[in-house]
Amino acid sequence: MSDIIRTEHLTFAYPPDEGKDPVPALDGVDLSIRQGSFVAILGHNGSGKSTLAKHMNAVLLPGGGRVWVDGMDTLDEALLLEIRRRVGMVFQNPDNQIVANVVEEDVAFGPENLGVATAEIQARVAAALKAVGMEAFTLHAPHHLSGGQKQRIAIAGVIAMEPACIVLDESTAMLDPAGRREVLDTVKTLNRDKGITVVLITHHMDEAAMADRVVVMDRGRVVMDGPPREILVRMEELREIGLDAPHTVELLHGLRQEGFDVPLDALGIQECAEAILRALA
């Protein structure tokens, strides 16, 4: 399998306030994301995780270094549309990314911009809405939907462009727990059934636990990178950069200190409960 996104010595700084030195938001990021994987990018506010996300479909262009999307250099302006078709982006506020007043017309917005033929757009819209489980809302007005439903519509809008990768830039941050569950289940299914690469930018540990791979960022650098079972149990290191380990890990850690023989890496609630039961038996 090839890399869908690859960055090399990526640096970036936002224009500084007057009279101040520019603070780098990204400070030499080397990262490869394999086609079909589910990667969570974790980090505290200001760690550069959102800035990194915006480089993945050329919303921001590298200040230094390079970014390749499916082998295409994001600095090449001629490839811009193709890059953005390949990597779709879902943002934090669902209200600010829905363009149309009817669900199906919003989902059609991407393919319309790409100049897809009408019959094909209709097929794609139907398929995309089905993929996110919102086919019953085809003709609804988006502002009557819940936050989680709106985000699923936004995801459908991305899917309709038939991307290879979806980047969710803190897309669950404004949702209630039920809405978060909806969105996460949707992307998990898309990743598993359609092989779409998912890059989940988040600061929720339990969300990161769902991924195949966790990348932890701090001050514009990648500080940890590996499977969730290896990363999320490093409580001390996580705490140092302002992140809390998942509640399950904290509980298991506490139990271990009390002398119980439990593993640290039972990340899921069910798994954690079973591990504790085993230790008690």
């Binding site: 479909n57 919303v59 953005r84 059609a108 917005f109 911009n113 009408t118 757009i121 462009m161």
Partner: peptide, 15 residues
């Protein structure tokens, strides 16, 4: 909108 490939009316099709 830009992320969803909006680039003006040129070459746009309709649902």
């Amino acid at each position: 909108m830009e992320c969803r490939c909006y680039h003006g009316g040129e070459g746009r099709t309709k649902l």
